[in-house]
């Protein structure tokens, strides 16, 4: 889970792509995904991918880390790509390149644009309650992720996942998730109380000025 890392890259960077307006980047990314969907040529998909890698380098993002992140969705697509082998190896590579292309596009978007700015831009399309929930989920991921790190350490101390003892390992994993859920439920109540004290009226107002990159003096 590299949400925190992407957020760090998005808020810490100051390249041209970081400075571009979030709305423009969102439109650019969606257009690029549209092209990736329509393209049926391996070569053209490779060119798009190389273009994306160029953006990564120009945006001074850690190429190795971004590349590894973009590989994650491939794991689940392998079954589908394998079943499509009847259509030839070209189609197999088209599927894989499409996954790589769309994943890389989205990772570039999120590693150059802070999440709240993207959600604020999405507010023009989606209703208010969805944007509020997106903000809440985004914040919750950060709260729970630190808890999850501790739980993971605890799980490892209890022996982690051992193939010799699958039942015990699964039981410990369930306990770990159970504790995470409990912590999440408790924190949500505290979070709600804090929001009410601060005058929460059912929506989170986001100022667009926070999304404008201010050149360091």
């Amino acid at each position: 889970m590299d949400l925190a890392y992407l957020d760090y890259l998005a808020t810490g960077g100051n390249s041209f792509f970081h400075r571009t307006s979030p709305g423009l980047k969102l439109i650019f990314s969606l257009l690029l995904i549209g092209i990736i969907i329509l393209v049926k040529e391996v070569l053209f998909l490779v060119i798009i991918l190389l273009f994306l890698y160029l953006i990564i380098l120009l945006s001074k993002l850690p190429f190795h880390r971004i590349f590894l992140l973009s590989l994650f969705p491939l794991i689940f697509t392998l079954i589908f790509a394998y079943a499509s082998l009847g259509r030839g190896w070209e189609w197999f590579f088209i599927i894989l390149l499409r996954v790589l292309g769309t994943a890389t596009t989205m990772i570039i978007l999120f590693s150059t644009t802070p999440f709240p700015c993207i959600f604020a831009s999405l507010g023009k399309i989606f209703p208010e309650f969805i944007i509020t929930v997106l903000f809440m989920t985004y914040r919750s991921v950060f709260i729970l992720f630190s808890v999850f790190d501790d739980i993971r350490s605890g799980f490892k101390l209890r022996g982690g996942f051992q193939l010799k003892h699958p039942k015990r390992s699964l039981f410990n994993l369930a306990r770990a998730f159970g504790y995470l859920l409990l912590k999440g439920i408790d924190d949500s109540q505290r979070f709600y109380e804090n929001l009410r004290i601060r005058g929460f009226q059912g929506k989170i107002v986001h100022h667009r000025r926070f999304c404008t990159w201010i050149k360091k003096q």
Binding site: M136, T137, R139, S140, L144, G184, I185, Q189
Partner: peptide, 8 residues
């Protein structure tokens, strides 16, 4: 809503 955010 905060509970939904946490569970999501």
């Amino acid at each position: 809503i905060p509970l939904l955010g946490m569970l999501a």
